[in-house]
Amino acid sequence: MSSIQVRPATLRDAKAIAEIHVAAWQDAYRGLLPDTTLDSLSVQKRQAFWREAIDLCEPQVMVAHLDNEIMGFVGFDRSRDKGTPSTTGEIWAMYANPVHWDKGVGLALWDAARDGLQEEGCTKVTLWTYLRNERALRFFELAGFKRELGSAKTTEVSGTRIEELRLQRSLV
């Protein structure tokens, strides 16, 4: 049996990344965000976003694949949070196709992002996630991330207020 491989994303991957992004949002955030919001997500808009991100390398995007089937993706770069040192990296997005959840895709993506951030000289990494996203919280806490006290904030997504919090961990 072959194992999950991770490689830098190419422009050809943008559609598969967009399809995974939409499917993962629709599955993971059902009950957190309104159904109308989730049902109206556009693969075409996400594809345009990810094509530009891949083209500009902002963030760096990598895909996990098995037998040439893209199973998930991660976007990472320097932290976007104001006031953070240049040695702080951030996971901007990390999603696996729901049909591949619990199969090691997230771990493969996290390992690749960690290595990429370390190569960039980052000594710490952060990410933002929804407070009620228990699957993501469980995954990242098992990967060594800790909740940052006092980081919780309320954001609005399509008219719905939702709590986010920042997680962080050392890379050294």
Rank of each mutant, 00 (worst) to 15 (best):
10 T>I: 13
12 R>M: 13
13 D>L: 07
13 D>A: 07
13 D>K: 07
13 D>M: 09
14 A>E: 05
18 A>L: 11
18 A>M: 07
19 E>V: 04
19 E>G: 02
20 I>D: 00
20 I>Y: 00
25 W>Y: 12
26 Q>W: 00
27 D>P: 06
28 A>I: 10
30 R>H: 12
30 R>D: 09
33 L>V: 09
35 D>R: 14
36 T>C: 04
37 T>S: 01
37 T>A: 02
37 T>P: 00
38 L>V: 13
39 D>Q: 12
40 S>E: 14
40 S>G: 14
40 S>M: 12
42 S>P: 01
45 K>W: 04
45 K>M: 09
46 R>E: 06
49 F>S: 09
50 W>V: 05
51 R>A: 02
53 A>V: 04
53 A>L: 03
59 P>Y: 02
60 Q>F: 11
62 M>N: 07
64 A>P: 14
64 A>G: 14
64 A>T: 13
65 H>Y: 12
65 H>E: 15
66 L>M: 13
68 N>A: 03
73 F>E: 08
75 G>N: 06
78 R>F: 01
78 R>G: 05
78 R>I: 00
79 S>D: 07
79 S>F: 08
81 D>E: 15
83 G>F: 14
85 P>I: 04
86 S>L: 10
87 T>E: 04
87 T>F: 05
88 T>M: 14
89 G>I: 00
89 G>E: 01
90 E>N: 02
92 W>E: 00
94 M>S: 03
97 N>H: 15
98 P>H: 07
98 P>Q: 11
101 W>L: 02
102 D>S: 15
103 K>I: 08
103 K>N: 13
104 G>N: 02
106 G>H: 09
107 L>G: 08
108 A>N: 01
108 A>T: 01
108 A>Q: 02
110 W>A: 07
113 A>P: 03
117 L>P: 13
118 Q>K: 10
122 C>D: 10
122 C>W: 03
124 K>F: 01
124 K>H: 10
124 K>I: 02
126 T>M: 11
126 T>G: 05
128 W>Y: 10
128 W>I: 06
129 T>G: 07
131 L>Q: 12
132 R>F: 03
133 N>F: 05
134 E>P: 01
135 R>F: 10
136 A>V: 11
137 L>Y: 01
138 R>C: 08
139 F>T: 06
140 F>H: 10
140 F>Y: 15
141 E>W: 00
141 E>Q: 08
142 L>E: 13
144 G>C: 15
144 G>I: 14
145 F>S: 10
150 G>F: 00
